[in-house]
């Protein structure tokens, strides 16, 4: 299974937070990493595009193939987070949340999969959230979108396992990234005290979990691994 050996990888959401940590670690491990984000990323090939735009994502993947080679690895980490009580989630906010998370993952898979399937190998890791396992509060739109990623991953994983493409998800707990604002309740000592580990997850811990799946998780298909400091057990 050659897809575990360093080749070309595409990371969405690579400009900051978890995506940036994953891109950095993969590069350290010898991968040629392209980053796709609204902002520029510190990757070998930084591509700026909106993951909700299927045509733009396809164009980005085509450029990766031209400049670095066809990606055998895809990490979908693009995401946004904003707390809202359910009655304040309007139609656009709801649809946009689904478009970024579920649509972003699906668009990247649609673009990268034909090449992987033609070669009979590939690795995809979607980034979900611990909140999709345990639920949250004031974030029904976000959790619905992240939960959809889990269902998508499980089915895609089973569908593609016979064809040599491994699809799994990492569902991080509250992670110390810019997505969690400085004044977020997730940083409050009262909240952290409710976690068995009493602290936030580090971006590196999420990246190391992704790296494990990429390099050695060769018998996982459609599964979710959740480094979450005990937030969801």
């Amino acid at each position: 299974m050659n897809s575990t050996e360093p080749g070309v990888g595409l990371v969405t959401g690579a400009a900051s937070g978890i995506g940036a940590a994953i891109a950095k670690l993969l590069a350290e491990r010898g991968w040629r990493v392209a980053g796709l984000d609204l902002d520029s990323s510190a990757t070998e090939l930084s591509l700026q595009a909106d993951v909700t735009d299927r045509t733009a994502v396809q164009a980005a993947v085509d450029r990766v193939a031209e400049e670095l080679g066809p990606p055998g690895l895809l990490i979908t980490a693009a995401g946004v987070y904003r707390q809202l009580p359910v009655e304040d989630i309007d139609d656009d906010t709801w649809r946009r949340m689904l478009a970024i998370h579920l649509g972003g993952a699906a668009n990247a898979c649609w673009a990268a999969l034909p090449g992987m399937l033609a070669r009979g190998e590939g690795t995809i890791v979607t980034i979900s959230s611990e909140l999709a396992l345990a639920g949250g509060g004031n974030d029904a739109h976000y959790v619905a979108a992240k939960g959809a990623i889990l269902g998508f991953t499980r089915s895609l994983g089973l569908e593609l396992a016979p064809r040599g493409v491994r699809v799994n998800s990492v569902a991080p707990g509250p992670t110390d990234t810019p997505l969690i604002a400085a004044d977020s309740p997730s940083r409050a000592p009262d909240y952290l005290a409710t976690l068995p580990l009493g602290r936030l997850v580090t971006p590196d811990e999420v990246a190391r979990t992704v790296l494990y799946l990429v390099e050695e998780g060769t018998y996982f298909a459609g599964q979710t691994i959740s480094p979450n400091a005990g937030a969801a057990i």
Binding site: P172, V201, V206, R208, Y212, P227, I233
Partner: peptide
């Protein structure tokens, strides 16, 4: 997988059930 769980990088994994089962 056990080696990963024993390593520093797995420091945020606790109480989890990991299912390497080929689908």
């Amino acid at each position: 997988l056990v080696a990963f769980l024993a390593s520093d990088g797995a420091g945020a994994l606790v109480g989890q059930i990991l299912q390497p089962n080929g689908g």
